[in-house]
């Protein structure tokens, strides 16, 4: 049997392993057949928000045992060992772990869209079970390991060499994708989203320099790279470098080119009151790349510390690495004054969990005085 990386002993997974957890509740969602990762992330968050009691309120919960094997996942009451839920492994669509919360998504059956809709497009009902455990990540990894073991068996039974499929998967073509990205959490947290009203004189610019968020960004829009000292934007005290600018006077800038965003900011020059919608973000972002082995391709190219291309669906993209960003740190080591060859060496050697701190290269050049900002 092929060894599959994960927290469990391979043989144990065939028989089944048990994890203690607290069952918080279940909900049901309707989903496309194979939704993209961003949709799955939103679904997991939706399920958690529906089931989890708001902060400060009592959360009803039941002590359970989660039985995980390469055939099934069962939820048993901890005291009587009675099966509350029993799902064949192949009907589990995916799992999500968010801090100490684990969400298990089981496909129920097909539903059809109402006849009123143009295409009779098939939809799945998915049952979402939400659990709490300090070991949520470990349990998710164990279920992920069971997925991989079961999938390898399935391939072998179908006459396919799992090793060959594994090679394709590690290049990000398909397969058991681990998507790790804090951006969605950050962007969907309403506390980070603000409306800022800026007062200024007629004909005065806002006093902001903008850069692109970079290809690979979950939220493609302009980023504040610098603020003119004493300018209206800085005087407001509500903006900082790194903030995403999502709208100006109610007009969305998301998905527009940098030139179009800059033009929209120039257009408000004649006004005395400007409303900006922003998402507060730190100037430096961290990508976390899960790379079990150094033989696995990182999936991006670097030139003089700047990320210049990204493999679609690769582990780097899934970890939040962005084109046009300068690498500031690799696993806690500053690389700002490091020669290219050494950066490549650090990246080649890095595995398990690779933490990469980065910022838009243009922001970096402005902050280090290599370039003069063009204030709008």
């Amino acid at each position: 049997l092929q060894e599959v990386p994960g927290p469990c002993d391979h043989e144990d997974l065939l028989d089944g392993v048990i994890f203690g957890a607290k069952y918080l509740g279940s909900t049901q969602l309707v989903s496309e057949r194979n939704p993209p990762p961003s949709t799955r992330m939103a679904q997991a968050r939706e399920a958690m928000d529906r089931v989890k009691a708001p902060d400060g309120e009592t959360q009803p919960m039941t002590e359970v045992d989660l039985f995980v094997s390469t055939k099934r996942v069962k939820v048993l009451t901890a005291d009587s060992q009675e099966a509350m839920m029993d799902h064949a492994l192949q009907t589990i669509s995916y799992i999500a772990d968010i801090g100490s919360v684990l969400v298990l998504m089981a496909r129920r059956r097909l539903a059809r869209r109402p006849a009123s809709q143009a295409h009779s497009h098939r939809l799945y009902k998915i049952l979402c079970h939400v659990f709490h455990s300090e070991d949520a990540q470990l349990i998710a990894q164990a279920i992920g390991q069971a997925f991989t073991v079961a999938y390898s068996q399935f391939l072998r039974e179908s006459g396919v060499d799992p090793n060959q499929v594994g090679a394709q998967q590690s290049q990000g073509a398909a397969g058991p994708g681990h998507l790790h990205n804090g951006d969605l959490d950050h962007f969907s947290n309403s506390e980070n989203c603000r409306e800022v009203c800026i007062e200024k004189r007629r004909g005065e610019g806002l006093g902001v320099a903008l850069v692109e968020s970079g290809w690979g960004s979950l939220l493609p829009t302009a980023v504040i790279a610098n603020l003119l000292h004493g300018g209206p934007a800085e005087r407001s005290g509500a903006l900082s470098i790194g903030d995403r600018l999502t709208a100006i006077n109610g007009t969305s800038l998301v998905g527009l080119s940098l030139a179009a965003c800059q033009a929209a900011v120039r257009e408000v020059k004649s006004q005395t009151l400007v409303t900006l919608s922003i998402i507060h973000c730190p100037p430096v972002t961290t990508a976390i790349i899960r790379r079990p082995h150094t033989r696995e391709q990182l999936g991006f190219c670097v030139e003089d510390g700047i990320i210049c291309s990204l493999l679609r669906g690769g582990i780097a993209e899934r970890g939040g690495v962005r084109v046009g960003h300068r690498i500031i740190e690799i696993n806690g080591h500053s690389v700002v004054a490091t020669p290219h060859a050494r950066i490549i060496e650090l990246l080649t050697e890095a595995h398990t969990e690779v933490h990469i701190k980065m910022m838009p290269a243009a922001t970096y050049r402005l902050l280090t005085g290599q370039e003069q900002p063009v204030y709008l």
């Binding site: 492994l89 192949q90 997925f147 399935f154 397969g175 994708g177």
Partner: peptide, 21 residues
């Protein structure tokens, strides 16, 4: 906190219509 998704690779091999009742 970070959100991690682990997709079951069997999903894409499942015949439409199958699933837990």
């Amino acid at each position: 906190s970070a959100l991690t998704i682990t997709v079951n690779p069997m999903e894409k091999h499942e015949e439409p219509g199958r699933g837990e009742e």
